[in-house]
Structures are given as C-alpha cells and as structure tokens.
Design a protein around this nucleic acid. Structure first.
Lengths: 235, 235
DNA sequence: CCTACCGATCGGTAGG
DNA sequence: CCTACCGATCGGTAGG
C-alpha cells in the first residue's frame, strides 16, 4: 500500500501539508497519509467515542494495517490530541478571520454576534466538522498535561466572544451577566452536535436565526430590531 | 450465575429500596448492594465515560470482587442502561411532581419556566446527580434497542416543556420557534454539566436567574417584569 | 508502512 | 457474593 501522494519533488520543494508548525519533524510524502489517519480518527472518535474506538478501526478506515498508525503517532492518546488540536486551531483561525474582516468592526453588536454564531455552527456542524465535536465531548479522555494545553486554546476562542457580549449587555440587548451568558450560549450551540441532522429539519441559517431570537432582547438602545427573518450581515 | 430474583418473601417485611416499579423482581437485602453498585457505576461512568470504566472499577468502588457485579446485572451494558433508566425515571418523577402542585397552574408562564429550569438544574447538578449526566453523555454507548427505549422517556420529559414554551411564545416573551427554542434551551442547561462547579463560582440560583434573563424577553404582554434578581416562585 | 507478535487487560462464567 | 479462570481484544513494538 503506497501513499497516493506527490511522487517525490525529490529535492528542495518538500511538500508540507499546511502551515501547521508541528514539532521539527520533517513530514515527507506521508503528510497525506497522516491527514487521512487524522480524519478517520476524528470521524470514529466522534461516532463511537475515544475509548470505544480501536486503533485497528482507525487503521482500517484509513486503509492501513493494524500497526501502521503508530508509525505516524506515538500513541492512541497522541492521535486524540492531534485531532483536538487540529480542530481547535482551525476553529480559532476561522473565528479570527471572520472578525478581522474590515466590515466586521462596523457591524452592530447584534450582527457581530450573528457572525460568531454562524461561524461556530459551521465549525460544529458544517462539512468536515468532526474535529471540534471530538474535542468538546472527549476532553476528559486526555491526560492532564494535554488537557491543560488544549484549555489555553479554548480560552482564546472563548475570549473572542467577550467584547461582543459586553457590548450587547451595555446595549440592553443581553440581560444576563456576561460570563454566565457566554457559558449558556456556547452550551446551547455546542449541544446542537447531539441533535442536529443536516439531512432533515432546520437549516443552519434557521438555527442561527432561532439562536439570535432566543438570546437577544429586541429592545435595543433606540431602534426596534426585526426578529427571526433578517439575514446574514457580511456575506 | 443467579438472577437477582426472589428467595421467597419468606416473611412479610421484605425490604424494598424504593417505590421503583422495576420488573416483578423481589429484591431482598441485596437491594442495597444493587443500589450501591448502581451509584458507583453512575459516578464512574460520569467521570471516566462508559467505555473507559471497567466492571472491576465498579466492583471495587462498591466493595466487591471483580466478578460480583454480574450477579446483579447480566452485562456491563445492562448496568449502563439501569443507570440511565433510573436517572430518567427520577427526573421525570421530579418534573411531574413540580408541575402538578396546585399552585403551579396559577403561575405566569415565565414563572412556570423558572420551575422547570430549577428542577432541571437540580437534576443535573444537585446532590446525587450522576445518573442523568451519564444518560446525556453516554447515549451512543447503548445498543439500539435500549437506546430507543430511553428515547421514549426522554421524549416524555421534553414534552413537559412544550406547553410552557408555547405560552411564552404566544406571550411575546419568547421569540424563537418553540421546537428550536426547546432544543437550544435544554442544550444550554445540559452543557452546564461540563463546567459547573458547586464549590466555586455561581450558585444554582444565580445560574437559574441568568438562564431566565438570557432566554426571555422582558417585554411581556402588559407588565414590565423584573430581571435577574427576582426569586423562586413556589417554595 | 507491513508482518508477526507480546503482555496486559477486560467482560464474562462455572461452581460453590 | 467469592474464587479461579478463560477467550478475546487491544495498545504497542521489533525488525525490516
């Protein structure tokens, strides 16, 4: 079984899967295989849970033999951590990108929140969204050291929500204390992983609309805001 | 291997752990042991997850030898299901009890919701609250048959929320569509299992207050409702 | 990345 | 409910 990757650029132009600054380990042509492994692991961890997933399952899902995952990752734990870190970095990147668009700063706080909620739902439920759900629901399976490391990424992510929530609180559009509101709001969103089914029921846009309606007071500072049916702010 | 059945009730005063109408199985003095096993299992399943918990762990936590749990339960799966069913029945009982008090019917919808939220938080986070969290976070570990059976209990529980949410929607205190609102609200509450720490931070009452402030619009039909700091409706 | 393998652990059982 | 045990599975490794 050979990797379906670049027949070696032989010399200087080494292929690096992404800007991920993982260790100083040179990744050669097996960068792709590594990513396939990660994707297979994420999918299985999400569906069956970490402890119930076998490294053999993962190997098979990636088209490998049972011992091969350990060529790419030194342990099952390392695989789990890699899945979570990849998920969290990607989520952070996307949230950063969305909030650093110039137009973002000009939005009303409520519309800024809509951007955050939209990104968050897409991270959790959009295409290729196995990594973050694994992180959300398998954190306790991590050894303490890595658990703490991940905690810092999570804290960064949550911090990005605070200015918006603070503005909304000052606005009168959000009555609950900001800290608790953040926990409750993210909880409501995160729980969607348990029940959302892309193939039936509500769409991601309806979901986002419902969340906005649920969390925000229509009675802002001055103007009367429309509810459920107003649409996306940026795109 | 013996089932946990009746040595004939020999004398009249048989000890029954609780009013739980479990099968027709007479439980003798080992009813207590069975319950200890259940409680130990719930605690461990909650902390480490089902797949990562060993039947040996559970036995040890209940002060037994490694094979002994199988005298009370025919399999590890059966233990898990018993934990979940016990949790769900108890939760249903409590919610029923709270909503069938005569005073309940006279409450404003917002105060009825506060009752539901209070009960729910207590079920999730109060003393002895390991059973329902296990159900919430380990449902995927159940075989399909039992998963479906549990689903019916859950549906009952969720149904109790609908009239209140519908009234609030009609009221104008809840803008989001009722079905999605229910999913988002229960999600926000359920997620508290992941972060709530009874020993520090907010109290359950503060939490409940924050949730009410977050979900409901202050602009009801006529009167202006107070926010965060109003207190419990019934007790 | 495969082949071949090991040591440990785990759910479960027989028999009392 | 304990003792003693089995068969299967699992994470991981040596060596190429």
């Amino acid at each position: 079984m050979k990797p379906d990757v670049a027949p070696p650029p032989s010399d200087t132009t080494v292929k690096r899967p992404r800007g991920r600054p993982r260790k100083t380990v040179d990744e050669r042509d097996d960068g792709n295989r590594r990513l396939e492994l990660l994707a297979s692991a994420a999918k299985l961890f999400r569906r069956k849970g970490f402890a119930a997933t076998t490294t053999r399952d993962i190997a098979a899902a990636a088209g490998m033999q049972s011992g091969s995952p350990f060529y790419h990752f030194k342990s099952k734990d390392a695989l789990l951590y890699a899945v979570m870190e990849e998920g969290m970095r990607s989520a952070l990147d996307r949230l950063h990108a969305a909030t650093q668009v110039p137009a973002y700063a000009d939005l009303a706080p409520a519309d800024q929140l809509r951007v955050l909620v939209t990104v968050h739902f897409d991270v959790l439920l959009g295409p290729g969204s196995d990594f973050v759900p694994v992180m959300l629901y398998e954190a306790r399976s991590l050894p303490p050291r890595q658990h703490k490391a991940l905690g810092q990424l999570i804290a960064q992510y949550e911090t990005l929500w605070l200015p918006v929530l603070t503005a909304l609180h000052a606005n009168g559009e959000l009555h609950a204390p900001v800290r608790l509101a953040r926990l409750l709001i993210l909880g409501a969103l995160n729980w969607s992983v348990q029940w959302f089914d892309a193939k039936k029921g509500a769409s991601l846009q309806e979901l986002t609309g419902a969340a906005m309606d649920l969390f925000l007071k229509p009675c802002g500072t001055d103007q009367n805001l429309p509810s459920s049916s107003d649409q996306s702010p940026i795109n």
